[in-house]
Design a protein around this nucleic acid. Structure first.
Lengths: 206, 206
DNA sequence: ACAAATAGAGAGCACCGCTCTTGTAAACGC
DNA sequence: GCGTTTACAAGAGCGGTGCTCTCTATTTGT
């Protein structure tokens, strides 16, 4: 790796850093290639040498955000702790959260290379639940679909239930961030607590 | 109401229709005032006589979408039927769904006038569950927050549980629309069915 | 030392939200 | 009936966007 490549890596890092700041402030849809280029000290055209399209830069940011969330879920143990950590992280970095779990940016479909990052996050929750079965999620179709995710010795109904409860978790956080609870469950802490407790009962985490 | 006003109403309707088509095709974030004006047969500047900002037009579309969903939930009875109708509607009109339950458009906060429309949708689900209590959602904080939503003779823990399960429902649909189930629960019908059944058990709908 | 590959800058295209000015036609007051 | 006010539509324009093309300077491999 020559000087050329090192410089290239440095400039790339600078672009990513600028993009991170832009997203933190204005969100994913508001990400402007020109603004990022400006912040990185480049002409607006030069940024396309590093990221051929806005979409490519966005993809890099999605992967970064997954890694960031993954890190936030390293030490919490058990479903409830993971759920609370996820909500806390989402409220601390709402734009990063929405980059991952929010409405896909139009014309932007999550590219395959983000899937491993997404799965790494899900693994925390799968491990927290362990390998026991969950009643109601043990249908033949689900068993077939969950085979890969559950692995050799994991419970397939458990994996299905975890997926469903992850949907509930992200749904709750998304609604909260969007302000849908304002007239009713605001602040939403009590409702969240009750929901997480219900999830524990559903998943058999006790 | 003179001829003047009638014309104004007609042009407004034309604009809304064009906006509806634009959103159906390109989504809320992709809504372009200029494109809508073109479709409505107006100069790009003339549209601002009817909707002072893009945000105002978007708000009108949000209210329309709520009404559209509300209509789709008129005849289904019971939680499971309502849940399936919601998912079906979301898959038929994904951009309208995301306009309502997706990531808020940056710089756009759901204005207060959309709240009644949102509540009208929620009412379907509240009525489906009825007025019985739901274990685990009967904390003092929730009781206080749910007082208005539950009404005089409604169950407050029931209302809280409905809110939580609505979050689960929208979370599931949002993840499905965003393609998050692609590597795992795809198609997501079986998982959805299992989740709805679980919701029925949680809410005591039988 | 020289050809090839690479990085950056600048101009430009077609689009965006929005504003300001100008022309016109309908409604109103007398 | 006529002048005035008011509503509306159009056009030009501002500063922004993603992205491309061309041109120049620098670094690289040989």
């Amino acid at each position: 790796m020559g000087v050329r490549d090192r410089n290239r890596a440095e400039v790339t890092a600078k672009i990513l850093e600028a993009a991170r700041a832009e997203i933190a402030e204005r969100g994913g849809v508001g990400l402007s290639m020109r603004a990022v280029a400006r912040d990185a000290g480049l002409a607006s055209s030069a940024i396309y040498r590093y990221f051929p399209t806005r979409e490519a830069l966005l993809t890099a940011m999605v992967i970064e955000s997954y890694a960031h969330l993954d890190e936030a879920l390293r030490q919490p143990e058990g479903w409830a702790a993971l759920a609370h950590a996820t909500r806390d992280w989402a409220r601390a970095f709402p734009h990063e959260y929405q980059l991952i779990y929010g409405t896909p940016i139009p014309g932007y479909a999550a590219p395959p290379e983000t899937i491993p990052s997404a799965e790494r996050v899900a693994r925390h929750f799968l491990e927290a639940v362990g390998d026991h079965d969950v009643a109601g999620f043990d249908t033949p179709e689900l068993a077939e679909q969950m085979a890969r995710l559950a692995g050799e010795d994991g419970s397939r109904s458990g994996a299905a239930a975890v997926l469903a409860e992850l949907a509930a978790l992200t749904g709750f956080v998304s609604l909260e961030l969007a302000g849908h609870f304002v007239g009713t469950a605001d602040p939403a802490d009590a409702l969240f607590q009750a929901m997480v407790a219900r999830q524990g009962r559903t998943l058999g985490t006790h």
